[in-house]
């Protein structure tokens, strides 16, 4: 594995994007930063600008107004970027599946690397999901 990739996996900086969630997923994400779970142990920090981020963390059922913004953010992110979908909403639109305002699920708009199910997922589940995406990248790059 190259040094670049190793460093990326050891210090993923996370940009948190809410595409119209009920805010519960967002609170669970913030829970991961609290003393009980403390993801800074793994070098993860929340950053305020997408240009600093390595992970784009999306929550919420994608509503119409958000779609152009999501595309814009994905294009602005410095590559390589990983996209993580947190919560039932961002995977399948959850209970909003019949809503007039949620035309397509998130993975029809941008490519997603890992899905974390739950409504909302527990902080343990979020951390496990991120650990899985790290594993996945390690394996896929090692095989090449």
């Amino acid at each position: 594995m190259s040094v670049k990739l190793k460093a990326l996996l050891k210090s993923p900086w996370v940009f948190h994007l809410s595409t119209g969630s009920c805010n519960n997923c967002d609170i669970e994400i913030l829970d991961c930063l609290t003393p009980r779970f403390d993801v800074e142990r793994f070098g993860m920090v929340l950053v305020g600008s997408i240009k600093h981020a390595d992970v784009l963390l999306c929550t919420g059922s994608v509503n119409r107004k958000c779609i152009p913004k999501i595309k814009e953010l994905y294009e602005q992110a410095p590559k390589p970027i990983l996209v993580v979908a947190v919560g039932e909403c961002s995977m399948s639109r959850g209970m909003f599946i019949d809503s007039y305002n949620c035309p397509v699920p998130l993975d029809k708009i941008i490519p997603i690397d890992v899905y974390i199910p739950g409504c909302p997922p527990k902080p343990e589940a979020i951390i496990a999901g991120v650990a899985k995406v790290i594993e996945k990248i390690k394996n896929s790059k090692l095989q090449k």
């Binding site: 040094v3 460093a7 003393p35 403390d38 800074e40 070098g43 390595d54 410095p78 390589p80």
Partner: peptide
């Protein structure tokens, strides 16, 4: 800072890793 907030905090080489990682990212 982490210890003052009852957290464990980052490992020793974290700032070095951050810099190496940023050097490998795309410059926009």
């Amino acid at each position: 800072t982490a210890r003052l907030q009852y957290r464990v905090g980052p490992p020793l080489f974290q700032p070095f890793t951050d810099i190496v990682k940023l050097l490998g990212k795309e410059l926009l």
